[in-house]
Each structure stands twice: as C-alpha cells, then as structure tokens.
Design a protein around this nucleic acid. Structure first.
Length: 276
DNA sequence: ACCTCCCTGGCC
DNA sequence: GGCCAGGGAGGT
C-alpha cells in the first residue's frame, strides 16, 4: 500500500521518465479522482502544454513542478498506483486518469477504490491547501529527538496514532508505523506523552532504516497487488516485514507470536515480548 | 481531539 | 450477501 517508500519509488520513476517532457493531453475517466480543484476543468486546462521540470515529494504526496509555476499534486490513496506506458497500450481496468506526454508515454493513474486524487495548484492554492500543514518528511527532514519529544509530551493518544498523524511527521502509514514501533521496541498503545527521551530516540532512529529497507525492495505490494511500481512490477518488501500482517506467526527475533488488534480502527501488529 | 465517511475487490 | 481494508477531510 502506498506509504513513503512506495511513493518515493514512484517519484524516482516519474522523475526519470517525465522530466523535460510536455503534457500533450489529459483524459479524466472518473471525475471523482480530480479533487480539491476549485474548478474541475482547471486540472486538464493547466496540465496541457506545461513542461515537467522536476518531481518532488512530501510524505505521501507527489508534487510535480510544472512550467509557469504550477504544481501537479498526486496522492495514491490506499489502492492507487501510477503506470508509465506507451500511449498505444490498452488501458488496464480502473485507469481513472491518463496524462499523455510529448515523449509518447502516458502516465496512467490506476486506483480501484478511488481514495487517491490528482490536482494542479497555483502557489497560492498550494499555500492555502491542507498540504501546507504537512509535517516534516519522515525520510528527508526528520526532526531531532528533543523536538519530537516536546511535540509528544502533552499527548495522550497512542503513539501509533501519532505516527500516523501527517502533521507531526509526514510519510508513515499503517504498515511502516507498525514496523517502526517494532524496531524501536515500543508498544503501539503507549500514550505519546509516556515515552521517555531514550524511547523517543529509539523511535526516531528506527524511522530511517525501516523506510530505507522498504525503499530498497521497491516498497510493499500486498497480495491484492493494488500497489505496483510504474513499470508494473510488484514491490518485494512484504516478505521482509517484521510485524505487519504476521499475526500469530513467530517474532523473527524472539519467537513469541505476533499480536494483532484494532487500534483507533486501524489493524495494529506488535511483539508482546520485544516491545515495551 | 475525536468520529464518520468515502469506495470496491476479495474473502468468509 | 455482508464485511473488511484504510488516508485524509470534514464535522462536532
């Protein structure tokens, strides 16, 4: 499912495939996929004729810088992925948006559950959108432990829920939040404010290795194959996850069965022996 | 700071 | 035939 490693993997492929090319056409097959756009028609109007200058990312949001200061924003939701394919190729099911490039390549936005979206913003619109409230990126600008501890100090919500809060740190989703907590040895149901400085340090220093491991394997494609890389291949991190999806299986470190429970409506996995 | 809703393939 | 997965926005 698309979290930071999956979005970053997608970003790298887009950067390699799109930079320097112009948009020649746009087909929105499902109106719902274009959201947060004050006038829906702006989406295609603003894309066509623009050149892709660079492809960036904050958390799980792809931000493609276009000519004339426009920003093409993409969020993959929970079942979305982008494909880069020659224009002539037939569209696979659930292709909700197709963006045609001057290179003859299409960007196809495939998303069965349609939780993802695309929009093209001006700098002003970007400033007033919810994206302006995104926290620091979990991979590129993780705050120091002391400032993290300060942000957590007054919080009574479970630390897992706080890791999922994109205004605190941007990029972690349900899978990698569980993996980070496992690596840090912290139980997901601990109140945020109950973590001492050593625990916050452990948590902080777990973030980068977990995300980099996911990235190394092209991210996590679950059995439903909803998330795929832009070339259509599957991410191969699933088999290397330590806790997510491993309920009742032995902890890779101590053999204790991995627990699963619902926390704030999100499935949560942890080792009751390794995590305190 | 919490709860509800959106959506659909896949599985029981 | 019904339920589950879940990120983020909106409302209370």
């Amino acid at each position: 499912m698309p979290e930071l490693p999956e979005v970053e993997t997608t970003r790298r492929a887009l950067a390699a495939g799109l930079e320097g090319h112009k948009v020649t056409g746009v087909a929105v097959k499902r109106d719902r996929m274009v959201r947060r756009q004050s006038r829906p028609a702006d989406f295609a109007d603003r894309l066509v004729g623009r050149k892709v200058e660079s492809v960036g990312r904050i958390g799980k949001f792809l931000m493609t810088q276009l000519s004339e200061d426009l920003i093409w924003v993409t969020h993959l939701g929970m079942s979305g992925h982008l494909r880069l394919v020659p224009s002539a190729e037939p569209q696979e099911p659930h292709t909700n948006v197709a963006v045609m490039m001057s290179s003859g390549i299409d960007v196809r936005f495939v998303d069965p559950r349609t939780f993802g979206f695309m929009a093209v913003f001006t700098p002003d619109e970007m400033e007033s959108s919810s994206l302006a409230r995104l926290g620091p990126d979990a991979l590129d600008s993780l705050p120091p432990s002391r400032s993290l501890q300060q942000r957590l100090a007054s919080r009574t919500a479970p630390i897992k829920a706080l890791l999922l809060d994109q205004s605190l740190i941007a990029g972690l989703g349900n899978i990698y939040a569980d993996e980070v907590l496992y690596r840090a040895g912290v139980r997901p149901d601990r109140q945020g404010g109950s973590l001492d400085l050593d625990e916050v340090k452990a948590l902080r220093s777990a973030v980068r290795p977990v995300l980099n491991a996911g990235l190394k394997w092209g991210g996590t494609s679950l059995d439903d194959l909803a998330y795929l890389l832009p070339d259509g291949s599957a991410g191969r991190y699933l088999d290397r996850l330590k806790v997510y999806g491993r309920q009742d299986e032995p902890c890779r470190r101590c053999g204790t069965p991995i627990q699963r429970a619902s926390l704030r409506g999100r499935s949560t996995h942890w080792c009751p022996s390794c995590q305190k």
